[in-house]
Every structure is written in C-alpha cells, then in structure tokens.
C-alpha cells in the first residue's frame, strides 16, 4: 500500500495523476495536496483541467494513471505488490461519503420535494433516523434562507434558490470535503450574490475542506487561503490569494487575470 504514515494526512493528495480523454491529455503527472481545512481555489483558462480535478475527486471520471488519496485512503486505485489495482465500487462508496459536491447545473432530483432532496442521502446512505434528518434539513434550509420552501418542487424555484438547496443537500451529508464546480456559472448575474453569500457563511462557520473552481475572483479572494493557477493540465503557479491577485510571478498568470478581470 502506498500510504502516507505521517500523523496528519492531507485531506486530498494527488500523486502522479494522469487523465486523458482519448488522445487528449487533460492532466499530466499532477502532484498536489490539499490540507484539512484548506480552501483551495483552482483558476485558469477553460480546458486547463480544473473541473476534471473536481470530477476525479468525486469519482465521476476514471483516472488514466496515478493515485488520489482522501485522508490517506486510496480513492479509486492503489499500489499493491508493485501493481496498480482498481478498487471496488464498495470501497469507493465508503471513501466518497466524506466528499460532497455542488454542481454548475444544481442537479436537484425533480421527482422529490426540496426537503426530500435533502434527507434522501442522510436517510438512505448514512441511515440517520428520518425525524432527525428532517430536523437537520430544516436547520440547513434556514441557513440557506429557504425555510419556507421545504415542500416546493425544485422546478418551482429560481436558479439561485435551487443552488442554495443543492448546497444544503451537500451539507446534510456532513462532508469533510466540499467540491464547488462553477456553482454560479449558470445563474443570472443579479442572483450570483445570494449563492456566494451562503457559501461565505459556510466557509466562516465550518472547517470543511473546500476545493473550488470559480470565475468569481472576488469570492475566491474572500474565501480561499490558497490559489492554484492551472494551464494545460499543470500547475503554473501557487500562491495565497493576496499574492496571486496582486503580484503574480508568472507571465501566464498575469495574462489570464488581466483577461478575466477585464483590465
């Protein structure tokens, strides 16, 4: 087993990760770690592999090569007796329970009401008693400002409201790691703020490790403690948000930020 034996395992560790779609190499020998409680934002041009990283951590894509460790545990592949072996669905599902994800397109279940969406996984995966799950779901709905919508159907809600329900649904699993994949990109500009405000509150009041892909640079600056700049599947530069957004070292980063920030 390749397993780090130090006391405090990183929340996420990428080791020699490769990801290709056919001939197209998306991630090339990627190594990086995210420590517990870190809020890491991934920036870079589209196609640079940021979203693929989140999708690999959530096991929505298969690794082409290398290993991902969650709190020291191999996620989908492990090295045993010198051979790289694929881990079973059952193992993946155990490790996956520590990870939550919020998607660009919300992905609420339309065949369930708001509260049913939130209690579905706690009740059926974590086996939390239903009454307890409902109490917790109501607290979370209150936290995201939708206490009055528990019996609504997802399609009756605005995009911003649906995304806030999706955040509550992810938090209901008490994840150690939360993946935010361009969570405001599908929203109208005037309701981006309400979603980001909820996430700022989550960042302030919990110690959940966050891995964030966003085009909202101000949000990245407010919430994260580390920013990684990606280009063509590799890390170009890593810095604190203060440094990254004011005095980046690499020319590639400066060009990207100039293009995104518009001046």
């Amino acid at each position: 087993m390749v397993r780090d034996t130090s006391q405090e395992e990183p929340a996420i560790r990428f080791q020699d990760v490769n990801k290709s779609f056919g001939d197209h190499v998306v991630l090339d020998q990627l190594n990086f770690t995210v420590n517990k409680g870190d809020r890491v934002t991934l920036i870079g041009p589209s196609g640079s592999g940021k979203t693929t990283i989140l999708r690999l951590v959530m096991t929505l894509e298969e690794l082409t090569g290398g290993y991902i460790f969650i709190d020291g545990q191999p996620l989908t592949h492990d090295l045993r007796d010198g051979r790289r072996v694929e881990l079973k669905e059952k193992h993946r599902n155990e490790v996956r329970k520590r990870i939550g994800m919020v998607f660009q397109q919300f992905n609420l279940f339309p065949n369930m009401t708001v509260i049913e969406n939130i209690i579905e996984a706690p009740v059926h995966v974590l086996k939390v008693p239903k009454s307890q799950a409902i109490t917790r779901a109501r607290e979370l709905l209150d936290k995201v400002g939708l206490a009055d919508k528990e019996h609504a159907h997802p399609l009756e809600l605005s995009g911003g409201q649906q995304q806030r329900v999706a955040i509550a649904r992810a938090l209901a699993m008490d994840p150690e790691i939360l993946l935010l994949d361009e969570v405001t990109s599908a929203l109208d500009p005037e309701i981006v703020g309400e979603v980001l405000e909820v996430l700022r509150e989550v960042a302030r009041t919990t110690d959940i490790t966050m891995l964030i892909v966003t085009h909202e640079m101000q949000f990245a600056r407010d919430v994260s403690n580390r920013v990684l700049m990606f280009d063509s599947g590799s890390i170009v530069e890593e810095a604190s948000p203060e440094v990254m957004f004011t005095q980046p070292t690499e020319q590639r980063t400066r060009d990207f930020l100039a293009a995104v920030l518009g001046d």
Binding site: T59, N93, G100, A121
Partner: peptide, 21 residues
C-alpha cells in the same frame, strides 16, 4: 447525466440510484 452524477456525489448505492432517482 447530471442526475446520475448527483446520485454518485451523494453516495447512493446502485440500486438506490436506479429506483429512487
């Protein structure tokens, strides 16, 4: 596909994914 992905993100089992969502 997003519906399948959400069931994975919530760690639902294969059976739960199919019959509940």
């Amino acid at each position: 596909a997003g519906q399948w992905e959400a069931t994975t993100a919530l760690s639902l089992s294969r059976t739960q994914r199919m019959w509940r969502v």
